[in-house]
Structure formats: C-alpha cells, structure tokens
Amino acid sequence: MKTKLYVNSANLTAGITMKDAQSFESNNMALHACENTSLIVENRRKLADYLRIRLTDFVCANQTHSANFYRVEKDEKGRGSTDIEHAVADTDALYTFEPNILLAAFAADCVPVLLYNETKGLIGAVHSGWQGTVKEVTLKLFNHLKNEENCRPEDFHVHIGAALSQEKFEVDRDVYLKFKALGYADDFMYYKDSTGKYHIDSQLTVKRQCELAGIPSGHISIDRTCTFMNPDGFSYREDKRAGRHMGFIVRRA
C-alpha cells in the first residue's frame, strides 16, 4: 500500500495514496474512474487496514468541480465508501468535528487540500481542480468555518497534496483569464512563447487562498510531487483513463 503521510501522530493521520503497480488497477482509489469497482473497494479496504480503521469509517463525495462544501455528521459514516450511490452528492469539500471518520478527496492532477484544527477538533478534505480553484472552493470553505463554525484561522494547519506542476499545467487564454480575474494569481502564471500557452501554478494559487482566509503561511505545507512527471502519480492530463489518488485525513478519539 503505497502512501505518503503528511501527518502521522497518535490522534491524527493525513496523507495521499500513490500509484502502485503491485496493487489492483495500480492502487486506483476512485469508483467513478475505474474498470472494476470491487477491486477499488479492495484497495480502499487495504488502506483502511493500513490506517488501522474500518472501511465503514470512510466518507466520500461525488465531486463535481464545484465550490460546495458539506459538514459530515457521526451517523453518516460509510457514505460513499463502497458505492457511488450513497456518497455525498455534488460536493468538493468535506469537513467534520466527529472523530474516527476518514474524509477523502480524489484527484489525478487536481489539488487535494487536507486541513485540521486541533483546538476545535475539526478536519477537512478538499478537491480543488482548476475549476474549483477559480470558484475558490478552499477560500469559501475557510470563510464558512470562520464565520459559521467560529474557528480562528490561526488554529488551522493545511497540507496541499501532490498535483500537476506549473510546468505541465499549460492552458489556453480562456483559462488564464479566469485565474487572472481572481486578482491574486498573477505571480503564479507565465506565458510560453514557443507554444502559445500559459502555465499556472495551481498549488500556489490554493496556498494564496488559504492565506487570504487568514491561515498563517507557516501553517501551510505543499507536496511538490508532480502527478504527471512522477511515476507514482496518476495524471488525467497524461492519460484520460487514469486512476485517482485519495487524499485522506482522520482524527482519532
């Protein structure tokens, strides 16, 4: 079970699964992008065993590149863990105050964002593809947590997971203009004359969104693994049939 752990303490584990030729479908974790759903469930079961929790502790969403977020309650354990039908619908950010629930975010080039607030006992997982980044899903979640859940931004820690690098994230002018309209992404973009393409650093754009929400820069880490260039990465840009990593976070009671 190939994983990268960003946090691994007695009461908190956060990380991301990686591509692994020794596992079913190379350790693909996504039921919405697979060849055999039963094998994906088995991969998830192995991850649960590795983390010493149960598969029925997982909560997954049907991601739609939205800016929608959802608070997961205790009785929702297991949603989307073994099937798509019961996953949280039309949602790209999950958070919970409940212990012993694993929150998942699936990505193959998109930016997974894992967050926790030990003071409040809150964890969260965000899927921020370029569309979600333009819609500011991470910033909107943090503003909600500050305004509606009475969280202090300085109490958060954020891990931005492996994603497509700026070198490989090349786009046309229409996408560039959407990022430029944010008003704070100019430093994270450049134009390449030889190809006529713009290159965007989506991870640093998400980091800036965290900072705009008041998260201290020192509380934000970035995994600079490029999902296209690294052999352990799933890349939709490289292969439209690619599997998905799972960014995950769980707080133990």
Rank of each mutant, 00 (worst) to 15 (best):
K19A: 14
L5T: 04
R251T: 00
R152S: 11
L31F: 12
G218P: 06
I220L: 11
C60Q: 02
A30I: 02
R52Q: 12
L204S: 12
K4I: 10
I40Q: 02
D92F: 11
N230M: 06
I249E: 03
Y176E: 05
T17A: 02
I53G: 04
D223E: 08
T3K: 15
F142Y: 05
Y70C: 07
F234V: 04
R44W: 02
A10V: 08
K46E: 04
L103W: 11
T227S: 09
V137C: 09
S66Q: 02
D172T: 00
A33D: 03
M189Q: 09
N43V: 01
G183S: 09
R52D: 08
L12R: 00
D20Y: 14
G132P: 02
L141C: 06
R237D: 07
A105R: 04
L145A: 06
V113K: 05
V137T: 03
C226H: 13
Y198C: 11
D75C: 12
A33C: 05
G233R: 10
E211F: 15
I101L: 15
S9D: 06
H219S: 14
L177H: 04
Y198W: 15
G161A: 07
L145G: 02
D90A: 13
S66G: 01
G233S: 08
V158C: 07
T138F: 15
F97A: 06
E136G: 11
G15R: 03
F142A: 00
H159S: 00
K180L: 09
G80W: 12
R52E: 09
G214A: 14
I249K: 10
F234Q: 03
M18L: 15
S165G: 04
A21N: 03
T3I: 15
K77F: 08
T56W: 14
L139A: 03
F179E: 01
S221N: 06
N100Y: 10
Q131H: 14
W130N: 05
E154N: 09
D49C: 09
E85T: 12
N147H: 14
I249N: 08
L164A: 08
F142M: 07
A125T: 02
L12A: 04
C226L: 14
C34M: 03
K2P: 04
D187S: 12
V88T: 08
S235P: 05
